[in-house]
């Protein structure tokens, strides 16, 4: 196994963030780490990278205890944190060369690896451009390439597609798939649930400091997925309407989880009465990862943890 997290606890002052996280990722497996904003995903990734000590528990990367031998463990690890980390005043090639050298790559092997990740992330034409002259998506590709350069056994990507265009997203996802096909274990933190489907990832849901569900997408949808009705109003949801305890309001939309969405839609429209004319659309939502997440946590993935 490439990553083994065992009973990890972490608190910031009096506020516990992680309360006994257990997680394993096998070689060739992509695991999507889902959680609300502030649920502790980045804290967990930072602990796995050995940049932050846990209060309790341990992390093994490639069988090496990160707490006891952080430098040995990091040899197996690639990390692309959420914040872009590239050198803006030197070229793309110089950025890649530095991190290649730091990983112990030299000569022909270094050139070969640079060419390979540049090809995977379409960086070849940007080799002589300074980091600061790249677009946001190009910087994100370089940022990810730096983590992949030394062929890590475990690659951690924290929100890798935030703020990128469709083409960049597609490139990044393909590169991740290729790396997993070559046997790397991937930890992938994201809010974009559709990406996990594209990556054929298994899913770990981090909620209230622990991994509350773990499984393949199909397993989770079968077990926890609920269909729903999305009722969208022209401006905002009218006051004084009671759609029941399971209803979730997001902007001008009310989501009504249901095992019989057609019936629920009819009942909801009947409940509207005089407000019926304020409805812009009624949409039946099939069970998917978002409905799984909603059913397990009571929140949508973009929301902020309490």
């Amino acid at each position: 196994m490439t990553l083994h997290i065992e009973g990890v606890h972490k608190a910031y002052g009096d506020r516990p963030v992680l309360r006994g996280v257990d997680l394993r990722i096998e070689p060739g497996e992509v695991t999507g780490l889902l959680g609300l904003n502030g649920a502790g995903k980045s804290t967990l990734v930072t602990i796995v990278a050995g940049l932050l000590p846990p209060d309790a528990g341990r992390v093994l990367v490639g069988g090496v205890d990160v707490g006891r031998h952080p430098h040995r463990a990091r040899a197996h690890l690639g990390l692309a944190p959420q914040d872009l980390g590239i050198y803006p005043s030197v070229t793309v090639r110089d950025n890649l060369t530095l991190f290649g050298r730091l990983a112990g790559l030299r000569g022909a092997r270094l050139r070969e690896r640079i060419d390979k990740v540049a090809d995977a992330l379409e960086l070849e034409k940007l080799f002589d451009r300074q980091g600061r002259a790249l677009s946001g998506g190009e910087q994100r590709r370089l940022h990810t390439a730096l983590a992949m350069l030394h062929e890590p056994r475990l690659l951690l990507l924290d929100e890798p597609t935030v703020g990128v265009d469709v083409a960049t997203r597609s490139r990044l996802l393909q590169a991740v798939r290729d790396l997993a096909a070559d046997g790397a274990a991937i930890g992938y933190s994201t809010h974009y649930l559709a990406e996990l489907d594209t990556l054929r990832a298994t899913v770990a849901i981090l909620h209230e400091g622990t991994i509350v569900r773990r499984g393949t997408l199909a397993e989770l949808v079968d077990t926890h997925g609920r269909a729903a009705v999305d009722l969208t109003f022209t401006e905002r949801v009218p006051d004084g309407l009671d759609f029941g305890p399971d209803a979730v309001v997001r902007g001008a939309t009310v989501r009504l989880p249901s095992s019989d969405p057609a019936k629920t839609a009819a009942e909801a429209l009947g409940l509207l009465g005089a407000h019926g004319s304020a409805v812009r659309s009624v949409e039946l939502v099939r069970p998917d990862l978002e409905t799984v997440f909603l059913s397990i946590t009571g929140h949508l993935p973009q929301e902020v943890a309490a």
Binding site: A49, G50, L51, L79, P81, L84, I86, A103, L146
Partner: peptide, 14 residues
């Protein structure tokens, strides 16, 4: 400021 310090540490640099 460039967020490269953590990257260097993860790259195994003390």
């Amino acid at each position: 400021g460039w967020h490269t310090w953590a990257r260097l540490q993860v790259a195994g640099v003390r």
